[in-house]
Amino acid sequence: MDEVQIRLRVNGLERRGRVEPRLTLADFLREHCHLTGTHLGCEHGVCGACTVLLDGAAVRACLVLAVQAEGREVTTIEGLGTPENLSPVQVAFQENHGLQCGFCTPGFVVSVTALLRDNPDPTDEEIRAGLSGNICRCTGYQGIFKAVRAAAGNTP
């Protein structure tokens, strides 16, 4: 099938590509943009490892086609912080044992960033519901929960 020319902004930079329509946004970010912080676990919308912001809304990048992101703004984990300058959510994960192997972490951090932006003072129940779309197989949920609690106190 014919490839399609797409243009979108990723972490503030314009990106162009010729893609097959079946290419997911997650594969576009990893293979075409070489932004491998967006992880792929299940590739069918269950695990949340590939969560990115699409026009500010947290979405599963494996459930968005790259062609659907034409003209839109994408923020990946690379756009939230750098090793030298971690985001408040990343700092909170680091300080509260919010990660073990780290595979699920980019998805959690992106989800939590959107969660706290929209609800800066969540209840414990709201935090747990907000985390329910991301799976951590190291079973680090208590640390992740504590990290969100801490980040909620530190984000402006």
């Binding site: 969560t51 809304a57 947290a58 979405v59 599963r60 968005v64 519901a129 907000g130 329910s132 779309g133």
Partner: peptide, 12 residues
């Protein structure tokens, strides 16, 4: 609505 999937799913 809040019972449908997770908020990342509900955004799409």
């Amino acid at each position: 609505a809040p019972l449908i999937g997770h908020f990342q799913i509900r955004n799409r």
